[in-house]
């Protein structure tokens, strides 16, 4: 849980300055440092970024009275505006999940390398 919040917070801070892919940096680092298993790392990464993007998107959606999301839904021929938020969560979640998993596996290789030396 702490890992999820830590990831969300650091990814959010980076996104204020850097492009969207900057979320991979904290995901890889946190995955390497704190990841326990492959599955949980992926899940943590998915939830961390997914949750961040969900909260941001939902806040914007509500504060904007749904004006823009309704138009984006029309644009992609989606029957309901909330599907736009769902896609957002999936995009962010997948990016976060795979990055964290890679970080975890990287950490594993690195620690093994250290032991061998």
């Amino acid at each position: 849980m702490i890992l999820i919040l830590l990831l969300a917070l650091s990814a959010w801070l980076l996104s204020l300055i850097f492009p969207w892919w900057s979320l991979a940096v904290p995901a890889i680092l946190l995955g390497a440092a704190l990841g326990r298993t492959g599955g949980s790392s992926f899940g943590t990464g998915f939830l961390g970024i997914g949750l961040l993007w969900f909260v941001q998107a939902t806040y914007i959606h509500l504060a904007n009275d749904g004006l823009l999301v309704t138009r984006i839904a029309d644009l992609f021929s989606l029957p309901h505006p909330w599907l736009v938020i769902l896609i957002t969560v999936l995009v962010g979640g997948l990016a976060g999940g795979f990055s964290t998993l890679t970080g975890y596996l990287l950490g594993k290789v690195l620690s093994q390398a250290r032991k061998t030396v």
């Binding site: 204020l16 969207w20 998107a57 914007i60 504060a63 823009l68 995009v91 962010g92």
Partner: peptide
């Protein structure tokens, strides 16, 4: 491109007027 477009900080979300 889906990544930059759906990113809440920099994508289309950033065009929604919220205040």
């Amino acid at each position: 491109p889906l990544g930059p477009f759906f990113s809440p900080s920099a994508g289309f979300w950033a065009n929604a007027v919220t205040s």
